[in-house]
């Protein structure tokens, strides 16, 4: 039972949090409202509260969006990115998961040192090794290919660490029981370990998706062909085009933001669970 003082403090906290979230949300709300407007209306409303109010729902309400979807290849870029994200989620879960499992459960020489090296790799920024990646991919002739884009992105030290932290708390006797049930180590990984660690699989999948969706530097180096471009590069191409209106720019930014918002709202629980469970044992 909450005391009167606690109730009052809770209310104050709620009000402060609402105010803070409005503060952070206001650019998004502004973007959303103006993405439906023509440039003249955007300029007109700029200095009034109407800047946050969308126009009336009339025939040309979705004009900016229709224009982007029909006149540019943005849909294709989005589908490309979704495809890359799907491939990288599957490969990332398998490769990083297997590495995490080995570091957690398989005894081999210098296991702890390997873990230390992988943890040290986490502090190396992608930008510092991207040149090496690029030179390697160029050398083997994989520039402008899906494989060339995907290959250096599969292994992620942070994801290995996340997997390792969760797998280390999996009970060993389940593996022993599975062995007696004629389950091979690989089958055990796919039919037992991954299903028993759903939250970390979800976390890694979300992180991978966001990584791919928001990445600009690596795809801009690997891809030159329009057919393979990702959403972020498409966004840059569209927004830097002089013929694109402000309303259209805001529409394309809105579209690129929507999947991120959906993913976060759908999986926020799993993301928190996944990260939390890396430091605690599941009951």
């Amino acid at each position: 039972m909450l005391t009167k003082k606690q109730k009052r403090n809770n209310w104050i906290l709620v009000i402060v949090l609402i105010a803070a979230s409005l503060f952070f949300l206001f650019p998004v709300l502004w973007m959303l409202a103006n993405s439906f407007k023509q440039d003249a209306a955007i300029t007109r409303d700029m200095n009034s509260i109407r800047a946050f109010v969308p126009p009336a729902l009339k025939g040309n309400f979705f004009d900016n969006y229709v224009k982007i979807l029909t006149d540019t290849s943005f849909v294709r870029y989005m589908l490309n990115t979704l495809f890359y994200a799907a491939v990288l989620i599957i490969l990332g879960v398998i490769v990083n998961g297997l590495a995490g499992y080995a570091l957690a459960k398989i005894k081999f020489p210098f296991r702890e040192r390997w873990l230390m090296i992988i943890m040290l790799l986490m502090i190396v920024p992608m930008e510092t090794i991207i040149t090496i990646h690029f030179l390697f991919i160029a050398k083997v002739g994989l520039l402008n290919t899906v494989i060339g884009y995907v290959l250096p992105m599969i292994v992620n030290p942070f994801n290995i660490f996340l997997f390792r932290q969760v797998f280390v708390s999996l009970p060993d006797d389940v593996y022993e029981a599975a062995q007696l049930d004629h389950c091979s180590p690989i089958k055990y990984f796919f039919t037992m370990v991954l299903p028993m660690s759903k939250s970390v699989v979800a976390t890694v999948s979300v992180f991978t998706f966001l990584n791919v969706w928001n990445d600009y530097l690596w795809p801009s180096l690997v891809f030159t062909s329009g057919d393979l471009l990702t959403a972020q590069i498409g966004l840059n191409a569209i927004t830097s085009n002089d013929n694109t209106t402000m309303g259209q720019k805001l529409a394309v930014i809105t579209m690129i933001t929507i999947p991120v918002i959906i993913i976060y709202s759908l999986f926020s629980k799993q993301i928190v669970e996944g990260v939390v469970s890396t430091g605690s044992k599941e009951g």
Binding site: P171, D173, V174, E176, A177, Q179, L180, M192, M196
Partner: peptide, 16 residues
Amino acid sequence: PMDRGISMVFQNYALY
């Protein structure tokens, strides 16, 4: 273990 012709019941059940 799987070829020894044994079944085992574990202390913590070890259910899937």
